[in-house]
Structures are given as C-alpha cells and as structure tokens.
Amino acid sequence: MVLEAKEISFRYGKESRQILNDFSLQIESHERVGIVAPSGFGKTTFCKILAGYEMPDQGEVLLDGKPLDTYRGYCPVQMIWQHPEQVVNPRLRMREVLKEGDEIGEDIIEGLGIEEDWKKRFPAEISGGEMQRFCIARALGKRTKFLLADEISTMLDLITQSQLWSFLIEEVERREIGLLAVSHSMPLLERVCTRICYLEKS
C-alpha cells in the first residue's frame, strides 16, 4: 500500500501563521521513513493530518489512491503520540485502554513487555514508559496499515527506547506496515529508518 500526502497546506485558524505549505510525501508499506525538521516546522501537525485528526486547508491525503476519509470504520493510519499521558482516558483502567484498539493480539502485549498487573491499574498509577507501551500496543491493531510515530521515545530511558523500537521494527516488517518516524535524534533515525527526509522551513 501507499500513503500519500499531496501538496498539503495547513494553518490553525485564520490568524495563526501558515504551518505547512504545499508539502508532499509518499510512504510505501515496506518503508520506514524518518523526518528531521527544525522546531516549529509542523511535524506533529503533519502526522495529525496524515492520521485524519485534522483536515488540510489544501491538498489531500490518499491511501492507495483513495482519499483517507473514504475509509469507513477503523482508520488504517494510526498515530502514536509524544505524550502518552495526554492520550489515554484517565478514568479507564489500562485494560480498557487496550480495548480501544483493534483486537490487540497477545503477542503484541507480550512483545512490548506489558505485564498482567499493569492492566488493572489506572493511567495515574503507572509510569510514562509503561504507558507508552500501552499506547504503542493500542495503535498496532489488526487493520493498521500505516503507523506514525511522533517523538515516541523522548520521555523514555535509553534501554526502554531501544526495547520498544526493536519490537516495533520487527512488527512493522513482519506485517508490512509502513512507518513514519519523527525524531530530533539523528542517530536514532539512522538506526530505525530505511529512508530519512531532511526538511527545511518553507
């Protein structure tokens, strides 16, 4: 499959500055693409548009040539966020958070080192690293075809970072999921990605 962002322009509201301007990018299923860009480029915004959380002012997002919003039900493009604590419902136990995903397999839970005991807890009762594992699992549902990873390991210690990425690389390779990774760390992207895009402010 191919995920394609075509000449995307975007800004938040009328008064704010232009964030993305005629930006295009193409990712194929077998690829792991890294994005390096200066701060304020709109990397997170771009991920949100690709995952369908924001509509671009101009341009379109195509999945296999069809606009992403014509895919009904589960969105095949899933995003993992930088701050896991901001994207889980604080009033759900972690077990319920996992159920928000698309039939998350036991092998994923095991592969990410999620322990049975953590599932009983509320988000406030586990650490950031533990919570990010749940968020990664949640995004790896059965029908996920593309994965967007927006600075997913900045809040983790090095060992956890390396654990989670090793699992992710293996999983997306096996299931032919296309990956887009955003990070400020060049050595990390060089390890993880098959192709790296260097972007400059337009």
């Binding site: 080192g113 956890t160 390396s162 654990q163």
Partner: peptide
C-alpha cells in the same frame, strides 16, 4: 554499561525486563 550500549550510535542493544 547497558545504558551506554542502548544508545543508538553505540549499537542500540537492549536488555530484557523492566
């Protein structure tokens, strides 16, 4: 040492467990 080895530029190796 394990932290050092987990740096992406130093091998990106990890040890199991938490």
């Amino acid at each position: 040492k394990a932290l050092w080895r987990a740096l992406p530029q130093n091998g990106f190796q990890f040890i199991k467990g938490t």
